[in-house]
């Protein structure tokens, strides 16, 4: 039973990270119909920024929560700046080009960022400090749920709640929903679609950066390729839930995380990715629009 619970929590932890990244894919897709293949790299850059910030800040002997908070802020700001810039440079000029052009641009951006970090840093794994504090009250449950599992799950829950409030009630959130539903009409009521698109990239990148820091601290190491596989998994989660649907991305993330965790725990860790992608294929066969997707997926 303990083993089951352990797998359950580790699945929730994975699922949280997939959900955080999947939100960026789904929001961007909902607004401009583009699969932003560079999104995984934003997550990777978030993790690297957190590492740099934590390394520098560690000279000031700050308490751990302060170190965590400041590194998180640095990661969020820097990754958002990347997301904002990528959209401006690589996608906006192609807004009216044939559909395939921005997609190719996105793949190019992804490869570019991977190699840029590869050259600027190293292809090897770098150790990542444990920024998440250890809670004494969880000590009796060690091996079942760790402090970072709990922090990751709670942080993700809080972020999801804040995101729904943002989308539902703020001016920018309403503008995002309007733009996703009818872009021409959004322009006709006076929404600056360019600004909405920028905001979407910024929000999506910030969420990915949070995921990047959390998982890096949980696992304890990063390299420049972590964005690739996490990006594909999160994209899978977004499609699973119904791309364009925000609750769908969260649901897809958790289903994928739990599936992987149980499958590797009870069957074999060699097949981790096989389970994830088999799930995707099954969903696409039986529910092409994803679990919570509505529109026909002709845009994919």
């Amino acid at each position: 039973m303990d083993y089951f619970i352990e797998l359950f929590f580790s699945g929730l932890t994975r699922g949280s990270i997939y959900a955080l990244i999947a939100l960026g894919y789904t929001m961007v897709y909902g607004i401009i119909g583009l699969i932003n293949f560079a999104h995984g790299e934003i997550y990777m850059i978030g993790a690297f920024t957190a590492l740099a910030a934590a390394t520098i800040l560690s000279f000031f002997s700050l308490p751990l929560p302060a170190l965590l908070f400041l590194s998180l802020a640095a990661a969020v700001i820097w990754a958002s700046a990347y997301g904002y810039t990528i959209e401006k440079l690589a996608y906006r000029p192609l807004r009216h080009a044939p559909r395939l052009s921005p997609l190719i641009s996105a793949i190019g951006m992804s490869i570019f960022l991977q190699n840029y970090v590869l050259l600027a840093q190293t292809p090897d794994f770098l150790p990542f400090p444990a920024l998440i504090p250890e809670f004494a009250f969880l000590a009796p449950y060690a091996g079942v749920i760790g402090s970072s599992d709990l922090v990751i799950l709670l942080t993700t829950a809080v972020i999801m709640a804040l995101l729904s409030l943002f989308i539902k009630f703020t001016r920018t959130g309403k503008a995002m929903r309007a733009t996703a539903q009818d872009r021409t009409m959004a322009m006709l009521v006076g929404i600056s679609v360019n600004r909405v698109i920028s905001a979407t990239f910024v929000v999506g990148s910030a969420l990915a950066a949070v995921g990047g820091l959390l998982i890096a601290s949980h696992i304890g190491q990063i390299n420049c390729f972590i964005g690739f596989i996490a990006g594909i998994k999160a994209f899978t989660a977004a499609v699973l839930g119904g791309i364009g649907s925000i609750p769908g991305a969260v649901l897809g993330g958790f289903i994928l995380g739990l599936t992987e965790s149980f499958a590797t725990g009870y069957v074999s860790s060699d097949y981790e990715d096989v389970f994830a992608f088999s799930l995707l294929v099954l969903i696409l066969i039986f529910r092409p629009a994803g679990l919570l997707g509505k529109a026909a997926p002709e845009k994919v």
Partner: peptide, 16 residues
């Protein structure tokens, strides 16, 4: 806007 309420549609009319 099909997925927004009547009230939200009206609010967006006064967006600026």
């Amino acid at each position: 806007f099909p997925g927004l309420t009547v009230r939200e549609n009206l609010d967006l009319g006064g967006f600026l």
